[in-house]
Design a binder for these strands. Sequence first.
DNA 1: TTGCCTATTGAAAACGATTAGAATTTATTG
DNA 2: CAATAAATTCTAATCGTTTTCAATAGGCAA
Lengths: 331, 331
Amino acid sequence: MNITIKDVAKAANVSVATVSRVLNNKNNVSEEAVRAVNRAVDDLGYSPNFLGRDLRKSETKRILAIIGTTEQSFYNDVLRGMQDAAYVEGYDILIVTTRDNAEHEMHLLGMLFSRAVDGAVLLAPRLDSKTISDLSKRYRIAICLERLDIDDILCVTIDNERAGFDVTSYLIAKGRKRIGLITTKVRSQSSVDRENGYRRALKAAGIPYDEKLVYYGDYDLSSGTRGCEELMSLDSKPDAIFSISDTISIGAMTYAVQHGITVGKDLLFFGFDNITYSHMFMPRLSTVDQPCYLQGKTVIEKLIANMKTDTPDKSTYMLPHSLILRESTGD
Amino acid sequence: MNITIKDVAKAANVSVATVSRVLNNKNNVSEEAVRAVNRAVDDLGYSPNFLGRDLRKSETKRILAIIGTTEQSFYNDVLRGMQDAAYVEGYDILIVTTRDNAEHEMHLLGMLFSRAVDGAVLLAPRLDSKTISDLSKRYRIAICLERLDIDDILCVTIDNERAGFDVTSYLIAKGRKRIGLITTKVRSQSSVDRENGYRRALKAAGIPYDEKLVYYGDYDLSSGTRGCEELMSLDSKPDAIFSISDTISIGAMTYAVQHGITVGKDLLFFGFDNITYSHMFMPRLSTVDQPCYLQGKTVIEKLIANMKTDTPDKSTYMLPHSLILRESTGD
DNA sequence: TTGCCTATTGAAAACGATTAGAATTTATTG
DNA sequence: CAATAAATTCTAATCGTTTTCAATAGGCAA
């Protein structure tokens, strides 16, 4: 039914070994054989079955990128970086979504256990760090955009704690005393780290931490809106709001604008990620820029390097972030 | 080195055949054997090598979803629909991006030719329709969100021509006479269809087509901004602008707002896709809602059905769209 | 002609699973 | 208890490649 290497061999009047050699551009094969094989391949419309090849070679040249959902628009640059790095080494990146479900994440990692891919990058791990850490002993895994509290696994990220500290310190330097935080119920390490940075900055400035000023929501626009509404209904309202993502922050800012609050003066806003939308609307949103493309590129380079060695690199790499100051903080 | 089914067989003191039967939940195997095998599997931490299994079975239970970039936020719902439909049939969806490059699209389709996946869905084909049509004769391929001008391939989409007609007719009914169109240089079938609908509506209303009113740009926000700027610098300015995506339309509207144009009165805006951002900002954007989740779900159901038969369904399914009227059209 | 070296080639053994079909064990029946 | 049926189990073939190793052919020197 299907055309196999045997059919090509027969048509070209050579052995399957020779066909294989031609297909893989080995040098020890005569001009004549090359021609005959290529003709047969064309005539029959043959293309090699990767299942056979991969089984024999025990490698697939494919890497899994496990994300939560494709919604987070800044993944796009990360994935571009990953693809570019993979391309130069002859790998393909397969994207797969967990829909923020740990069980499904484990199911997808099954592709790794069962050798359907050579390695995996987790971009929004929901599994607990012990599990991931154990897996990383047997398989080629890396984390990107996040880190694990157990740090015996390859990680490429930014210093989120530091970024949270930087943002909060900046708002304090602007004379703000009651700084709200809109974060997520889901305790991703990056959210926790940003929150810790926020607390450290408060402490460093001698401002007492007030749990009422912290809102725990989801990752979407409307969650930001609800968060802002909640915080602004407090008896002593915040004078600045730091959100752990631009999407959330834009949702929050929308509430303020629609309720006549002067953004950038009465209330400052600071986001995170520097997505396209963050500078398209008035007032433009101050935010933290993280090197998405570079993180993606780096994690794949390191991961592929790890595949080639018995002594894998398990370091955590923190790439530099920067604050982008715009109208939402009165800049 | 790696643990194979043989190791499990040895540890459980049975043959590989029995191990395989236990692993695949066949009924003709004794309780005792099941226990022994399961224990051995746990002890050894074995998980089956899919390359071996897939080769033998000649199926992978994986379907490729080929998109342009993950940027387009409305893909998220489509992919969710695809995954849900795939899940009930035991398939996984692998997402892969062409970065809008036909050559790379062909490379990715290689996974189909080489049997690394069982089928593929094209969500933003860049290859010419002849090529795709030919491939669909040998492989299980479907199109989603788009269609081909050659219609001998499974397609799940909306009636984009009709939608373009509906939008334009609505604007005309609102008394508008000079209706601008912001579309894309890349001639995707959906863009072409929407543009054709636009023209048909003009003609039906006896309004002459004016090529100056059509701007060809990219898919992003800033392209909308540039498009609006260009159209508004015409001697006889448009009194309404239809953009082929919300992202573009929001970019366009941003230009208007920032230049003191009263949106919804001086200038009406109509978008396409009903993305989250479209109703988050004042003025809220009127747009076309297309059933993303349903299209994704449907295309996978039909594709999997096609995999089980020798007489595949090559129909084009057009699911219903609807107009969402908001402030940008004065509603 | 013979021998030796090199360049090609082919036969057959992997890779790790599934699955027919044969072989064995166990249960059932007269 | 023997004969038969049913339930398990095993051996070995198979999927489509790559790759080792042996075999062959051709060229060249002696």
